[in-house]
Design a binder for these strands. Structure first.
Length: 446
RNA sequence: GGCGGCAUAGCCAAGUGGUAAGGCAGGGGUCUGCAAAACCCUUACCCCCAGUUCGAAUCUGGGUGCCGCCUCCA
């Protein structure tokens, strides 16, 4: 069964055919490192992690590159505000990103290139665009001439006329067209800069991904991804540059994930309605956060609220509780058919444009079968882990709590219920829950 | 103003032509010293109005409502 993916460029779901199977090149736009990641970032990277896992299961050999934008206006502003060097700031947030995403069980990319490590590539790209008459120089700035790409707007489905009719386009008299975008920006005093044929300056944002894709994966890749907010202008501008510079389609498939919303509005830094992963991790285990982010189809909006997160947590715990309750027995021959059918449907759902909601419903059906027949927990574990779930190490229970739980069990055994209840209350007031099982007990975090 | 998307039970959410997956909450049971957890059972005229079709949540047209992009943004 072929893998099907929605392609933002063609606006339809189609069979995924790699350029040179079984290899798949995947480039995902990373974060600008000047602050902590919020849930919206997490959703994007969980989505592409899922895509990568499903492609791998399908038999593809995925090479995944994801950049860090480590130079731009906001970074410079934040570094000045914090009175620290730009590189110190960016390293801090690269480390924070790595830590935050690791907790979500995201498989690291093959390479995380830094924009600042690829300035010569970008300069070369810009030179090439100038030579091809797709860019022009004005007083140390270089602009991309969008008219050089006669299909400009094809990705975001915008026509140049419509864009010109908008009210929100920045007026800059240096530009031939208000839609032209900056490739090289001259540096002001005190700003970091790199030398170039047009003077000291720094690259424009839309250029780095093109240069890094070309240098690390080649000028024509299988999949280019990112959040839906990157479609325009970022990805549109990348596409235009790549087409003009390399005369290739650049990326065969463009994959964009939907937003996380709060009170029905997009979560974003500028609106201030964001929740950082770090804050959420304080109240919710990371594996539940991952489950919450994966439950909804990647292209639909995902409404965040503490209630929604709790809902996901309850559902997830129901799924994982089976590992504590049902013995790990192999599936007998006469039950292979129903179990395998669920497994097949699970993968079919994922191959169908990552229909993870459908796939997870199969996990719950499997859960039901496991309880009914008291076997097959390994299949649930295998399927869940293949999409990055069920990875949490057993939660750490402090030794004194463990000891109290053990004492309670001893008290229970001699029917000293008063002591047992007293210990349970103490354990609960410490934020843990002790639960009896047919053959013993377990302690978990509250 | 331009372009695009979405509308399925109290809530979340699949399904894209053959009469509605799954989860949460609610109700009812089972188990249990207590408590918790868990398990089983149970809950839908698919926003409205036309149309196409033997048949539509699913296709077409028209409404209504919500959201997104057009500016940095995952």
């Amino acid at each position: 069964m072929p893998m099907k993916l929605y392609n933002s460029l063609t606006k339809e779901v189609s069979d995924f055919c790699p350029i040179s199977p079984p290899n798949v090149s995947l480039y995902v736009c990373g974060v600008t490192v000047y602050d902590y990641c919020h849930l919206g970032h997490a959703r994007a990277y969980v989505t592409f992690d899922l895509l990568k896992r499903v492609l791998s299961h399908h038999g593809y050999n995925v090479t995944h590159i994801q950049n860090f934008t480590d130079i731009d206006d906001k970074i410079i502003a934040r570094a000045i505000e914090r009175k620290e060097p730009v590189t110190q700031l960016t390293q801090e947030f690269i480390d924070a990103y790595t830590e935050d995403m690791e907790k979500l069980n995201i498989i690291p990319a093959n390479n995380y290139p830094l924009a600042t490590d690829h300035i010569p590539h970008m300069v070369k790209l810009i030179q090439s665009l100038i030579e091809k008459n797709a860019a022009y120089v004005v007083d140390g700035s270089v602009f991309f001439r969008i008219n050089a790409d006669k299909n400009y707007g094809q990705l975001s489905n915008k026509s140049i006329g419509d864009l010109n009719a908008g009210h929100r386009i920045d007026v800059n008299h240096q530009k031939e067209s208000p839609l032209d975008f900056i490739l090289w920006k001259p540096s002001k005093d005190d700003e970091p800069y790199w030398p170039s044929p047009w003077g000291n300056g720094r690259p424009g944002w839309h250029t780095e991904c093109v240069a890094m894709v070309e240098s690390l994966l080649g000028p024509h890749i299988d999949i280019h991804g990112g959040g839906a907010d990157l479609k325009f202008p970022h990805h549109e501008n990348e596409l235009a540059q790549a087409k003009c510079a390399y005369h290739t389609p650049f990326a065969n498939v463009w994959v964009h994930n939907g937003f996380v919303t709060v009170d029905n509005l997009k979560m974003s830094k500028s609106d201030g309605n964001f929740f950082t992963l770090r804050d959420i991790y304080n109240t919710t285990p990371a594996d539940i956060v991952r489950f919450f982010l994966m439950r909804t189809h990647y292209r639909s909006p995902l409404q965040y609220s503490t209630a929604a997160l709790d809902d996901a947590g309850t559902a997830y715990k129901k799924l994982t509780s089976v590992f504590d309750i049902v013995p790990n027995a192999p599936i007998p021959d006469h039950l292979q058919v129903p179990f395998n059918e669920i497994k097949t449907l699970f993968w079919q759902a994922l191959y169908n444009d990552l229909n993870v909601s459908d796939a997870i419903s199969k996990l719950f059906e499997l859960h039901g079968l496991i309880h009914e027949h008291q076997c097959g927990t390994n299949m649930l574990l295998e399927l869940g882990q293949s999409i990055g779930l069920f990875y949490k190490q057993s939660s750490t229970i402090p030794a004194h709590i463990e000891s109290m739980a053990k004492d309670r069990w001893e008290a229970k055994k001699v029917k000293d219920f008063q002591t047992a209840d007293q210990l349970r209350i103490e354990i609960e007031s410490a934020g843990f829950i002790v639960e009896d099982k047919p053959d013993g007990y377990r302690v978990r975090t509250g």
